[in-house]
Every structure is written in C-alpha cells, then in structure tokens.
Computed example of a mutant assay.
Amino acid sequence: MDNASNLKLDSFVQTNTALTENASIYEANVSTKAQADQFASDLEQLLNLKEEADQPVKWLIGEKNAVKKSLIEKLYLLCNGLVCYANSVPNSEILEKASTGKYALRNLSELDLIDFYKQCVGIARQHVADLPPFGPSEESITAVETDGKAFEQKRSDLILLKEDKATARNEFNLLLKKINKLLNGKLDYSIENLRTTHPDFVNYYFAARQKAKGVQRHYDLLGYLKDKATGKAIALGKVSVEGLDLTTHITANGTFRFKHFPEGEHRLIIENINYKTLYVPIRRYASERSKLYLEMEAIPLEVI
C-alpha cells in the first residue's frame, strides 16, 4: 500500500480506538452505535485486505527463477545429446527441433520455454533406448521433466498470487471509499453533536481522524455549515472568535477555516444575513486539527 493509504489506515485504527474507549458515551444512541459498529466491522475487513494486498512476492519470484535456471542447465544437456543423436542417425527433424544454445534458452519467453522442454522430453522418450551413448538417460530426462513441472507450478503460483493481490487491492480501494462515505457523511456528524456534553471525546475523535492527512497541514479549524431545515450548504457570511481579533469568511460552498487557531476554550460567532447568529463553544488542543459540522436556522420571512 502507498503512504497515503497507510496514513488513512492508521487514522482509522486510532479513530476506532477512540470510539471503543468511549462507547459508553454514545451507545444509548441507536443510530450512532450502529454507525460505530459498522465502521469497526468494515475496518477489520479493510485490515485483512491490506494484509492480502501486501503479501510479498519476491520469495516466490526467487524460487521460480532458481527452478528456471536449473531447468535450462539440464535442458541444454538434453538438447546437446539429442543433436548428437540426430547427427548420427541422421534425423533432420530432431536436429531442427532440438538444436539450441544456452543463450537462446535463457531468452525464451516462459511459455515458449515450457513448450520447448515438453517437446524435447517427448522426443527423448521416443528414442530413450538409443540415447545413452550420447549422454541422455532415463534419469536425466526425468530430471528435466521434474524441473519443468516445478517451473510451471511456480509460475502458476506467482500468477495466482499477483491476481489475488490485485483483487485485494481493488476491494481495499472500494471499501476505503465506503468507509470514507460512512465517516464523512454520517459518523463525523453524529460525534460532533456530542461536543456540548463531551468535548474531550469529540476532540480526541477528530484528532485521530485528522492523522490521515499526514504532514500536510492547511488548517487548524475547519467548519461545514448547512441549513437546518433543508440540509443545503450555507453560502457566504463570516465567522469570528469572541474576544479575539480573528475572523474568516464563509465560502460559497458553506465552509470556513482558520489556518492558525489558538488552543484553549473559545466561542465562535457565525453570521449570515439570512440566518440566526450561531454561537459555538469550542475547546482546542495545540496538537490537533478540528472539524465542525454545524447547522444554522433560517430567519423566517416576514409575511406582509
């Protein structure tokens, strides 16, 4: 897995730890408990897929190459014996089929090498009684066949292992998207709703969530605003910190961010001309980044 996936997994593991250690806080809430349980189950499957996708292949490549080298050495001797026999008979067909060199054998594709060893073993078995004076024996022919079959098996095992790794990697990426959707679309909101009563747990949870970003740091505090009634993003307005000269604007997509936000307890003042002003208490630790998912209540239109 690449570094980004490993960071994401590390974040998920720590997020799950935060949830497990504080399960008593939210377990009475059926929806939040179900989301946390689903996350834990998906994470376990994700870790298994990672292990499968990260299976090493070098050892099997090494074994396959060692068997291939042995096969080529023995096959070259068998071919020389067949060529000598063909010249003595003479037999131009055997001479054409068996004539080769080590360099040529080494440069055959794996499938061509398999076809070639089978062809030579077949010819040798047809003339086994006449070959001993030229080198090949029943034992040496069997040795070539044994190495050939071992090479085929190692090659097949390697292909299957690579296919399994590729399948696991694809399933990993699909499940990763599913988990991200669960966290970003549901569980993060559910946990954020506990900030008023359990701020330390909420901060702990989101600190774990942010570890997936690695060393990239574009904000200390990030907020998402949506209409309480419609769920649509709230565009424009401003967010300030009570008692501090610290203000930022709400984007057209309903987000706001502070790149540098002081640690400690503060209160955000969120203003939009079409919505009731929102006051949000927040406690932030210097080592964390925080995300807020907030809803604002629209100001009713006056009926004339």
Rank of each mutant, 00 (worst) to 15 (best):
L7Y: 05
S11E: 09
S24G: 04
Y26P: 12
N29Y: 00
S31W: 01
S31K: 13
K33P: 00
D37A: 15
F39P: 03
L43Y: 03
K50R: 15
Q55C: 03
L60E: 06
S70N: 15
E73T: 14
L78D: 09
L78V: 09
C79F: 00
N87A: 10
V89Q: 14
S92D: 12
I94T: 12
L95Y: 11
E96Y: 08
A98C: 03
E110H: 12
L111I: 08
Y117S: 07
V121R: 04
G122Q: 09
R125G: 06
D130F: 01
P133D: 11
F134N: 04
P136H: 04
I141D: 11
T142A: 15
A143Y: 06
E145A: 15
T146G: 03
D157N: 13
L160F: 02
A166L: 11
A168V: 08
F172D: 02
F172V: 02
N173L: 13
K177M: 09
K177C: 05
I179H: 04
N180F: 01
K186Y: 05
I191E: 04
E192S: 12
R195Y: 11
T197E: 13
H198K: 14
D200C: 05
F201E: 09
V202M: 08
F206H: 14
R209L: 03
K213R: 13
D227W: 00
T230G: 12
A233N: 09
I234P: 06
K238E: 15
V239Y: 01
E242M: 06
I250E: 02
T255C: 11
P262S: 14
G264E: 08
E265W: 00
I269W: 00
I270R: 01
E271F: 05
N272H: 13
L278G: 02
R283G: 04
Y293L: 10
E295W: 02
M296L: 15
I299H: 05
I304M: 11
